[in-house]
Nucleic acid binder design. Structure first.
Lengths: 345, 345
DNA sequence: TTTGTTATTGCAATCGTTTGCATTGGAATT
DNA sequence: AATTCCAATGCAAACGATTGCAATAACAAA
């Protein structure tokens, strides 16, 4: 009935809703249309062109849901950010967000889509099972172990295509990509001591294992050199952090001359507070950060810090995940951090 | 074969792959299982409990792909970040990433998932059609118009559930949420002038319309007060920006005493460069930023800036989108920016 | 003319849920 | 005892693309 289509213009009598409609227009079977649009080689060149032209003309695109159901794969990688310790941390956490940006690039490159989910484990017991078990994603990248190490371990036993950004523990079962935080902590402490510090402090939350490892690394060096080191716990959300830092600084005034901040963000806040108190950096107190975010080079004085290579991390996460999707049980990947010497230590 | 998995609990002879398997175990029909698991009220309480228990026991979750296909909705909102002007801008753009974080929160609250796609329009003509037309998302949020204003306009004519973060143009057809950039520009210029500046400069890329509007607003005020203002174009990627800022500052030395930076990130770099040159802020030169990112309060001296309420923006985007999903053709939402007076102007 | 070969295409089952409609059984009503 | 009525469930047709296998046509070889 729909005999006289308008050859030039977009709209015709009835819209083309699915592959079958298009098949009718093209005078072929749905199967052929499917093959043509999928770019398979089993279609005659002319038929293909005709079908493609028709599809373009009607702005038709095969329904992905149907395709995914039938093929039993989604082409989507889930990215989960568990917000365990500090719900508002990651909202503004430049590091995680930058990692996310790079992940998006890498995944796009490989033809995958990215589904982002921020989860609050405390409110949602089986966030990970839900994400995995519903057939909505082909694989999962978890950004940050938060306080969910054990849960992740459990899942890892029965689910291959998962890679986690975070800290590597001896003998753990899930595949992780991350910096060697302990080494980073060592580098930081060594630098502070080499710069003349004789009493150290670690400033920041020590709960998350990444940070705990940074502290442990620093402590190892400090202990070896018989130099005291203390932990000054703070929250990581911007609003609470500033006050806590101020308190700590009051408390340690004159007693500490080398501060290792858990994060560049913490270091920046610390620098500001020190300046406000008239404490000279690096003369009276040396400061070192972690991450090497863009701000690090913009502080006054420019921040000495331990760099994590975010782009390499993202690439590692994606590469390992793809290998796991192919069935390989990959090893973890630990990236070496580097000391970036600027002027605060 | 897989007989002895976990002896006490989880597994039995054959795995439960779908609703039909579960129905068989429960001694009911697939339809009933579907209704029970969906929480519909048409199921006897006892039957439901039994089914839920069974599902829990076998770790079964209904396949989302099938569900989405059948129900013709995905529960997924697409978030597209077009990278037009400067491919590497947004990777590190804290503002966009923070907005994304808030979007994720809002969408999660409303029960939607978030699919992130970073697109390079230059390499991918119909990025927007592809995203929309494949039935993969129920609606789309575009973060930043970039240089894609016209394409977005085209799409908006035939596709309701789309909301865009960006600048509002007189008479535009697509629904946009964003700050009143022109007003923000005015606030900035007024402040600089009130602080004593007599020759202004706008520092940053003026190509993207958001920034162009900021400049235009500032220019309007400057013109009205008969104060000169010039544009100093820079790229927004960190690596190129610094050098360009340095050049500009050399060029305008002594000729400009009020700098309006397109972005806090630009302002921070500018402050650092000024300090390096021994130019006193705000005495010799006044500086004002835009966004009020967390860093703004951490600079030395603390940065006076124009604040955009990111959380409100995210909420607006999601609210409008949901209304559009319900079929309402909503108006745009323009949020008023606020001057945050600190010490650089 | 017959047979073999190859390149295209059609056929129909399948992926796993959802949902309108029909059916059942039991309780309530007359 | 007969009739209504309702809650609970079963039945089977969608949703729209993919793909193994069979069928066809076209052409070459014998």
């Amino acid at each position: 009935m729909s005999e006289h289509e308008h050859p030039e213009s977009e709209n015709t009598s009835r819209p083309v809703r699915n592959i079958t409609d298009l098949a009718r227009l093209a005078g072929v079977s749905p199967g052929t249309v499917s093959r043509a649009l999928a770019g398979k080689s089993l279609v005659n060149a002319k038929t293909r062109e005709k079908i493609e032209a028709l599809a373009r003309q009607h702005g038709f695109r095969p329904n992905q849901m149907a395709s995914k159901l039938r093929r039993q794969k989604t082409g989507v990688i889930g990215v989960a950010i568990p917000l365990g310790h500090d719900v508002h941390q990651q909202i503004s956490d430049t590091f995680f967000m930058t990692l996310l940006g790079h992940l998006a690039d890498e995944l796009t490159d490989k033809g995958y889509d990215l589904m982002l989910r921020r989860v609050i484990p405390a409110q949602d017991e089986d966030w990970l099972d839900r994400f995995i078990g519903s057939g909505i994603v082909d694989g999962v990248i978890v950004i940050g172990q938060s306080d969910q190490f054990d849960r992740i371990e459990e899942i890892a036993d029965g689910y291959l295509p998962m890679v986690v950004w975070g800290n590597h523990q001896e003998g753990q079962r899930h595949c992780v990509v991350g910096s060697d935080n302990r080494l980073g902590g060592k580098l930081a402490a060594e630098r502070l001591i080499a710069a003349g510090a004789r009493s150290l402090a670690f400033l920041g939350d020590t709960e998350p294992i990444e940070f705990a490892a940074r502290f442990a690394g620093a402590k190892e060096i400090a202990d070896r050199m018989s130099i005291p080191i203390r932990a000054l716990p703070t929250h990581l959300s911007a609003d609470r952090m500033n006050g806590e830092i101020a308190e700590h600084l009051s408390e340690i005034e004159g007693k500490v001359d080398g501060i290792f901040a858990a994060t560049d963000a913490v270091a920046v806040a610390c620098l500001r507070e020190l300046r406000e108190r008239g404490v000279s950096v690096p003369n009276s107190v040396k400061v070192i950060g972690f991450d090497d975010l863009p701000i690090a080079s913009q502080t006054v004085p420019p921040l000495t810090t331990v760099r994590q290579d975010i782009a390499a991390g993202a690439k590692g996460l994606v590469d390992l995940l793809l290998r796991r999707l192919a069935g390989v049980d990959t090893e973890s990947l630990v990236l070496p951090p580097h000391l970036i010497a600027r002027e605060t230590a």
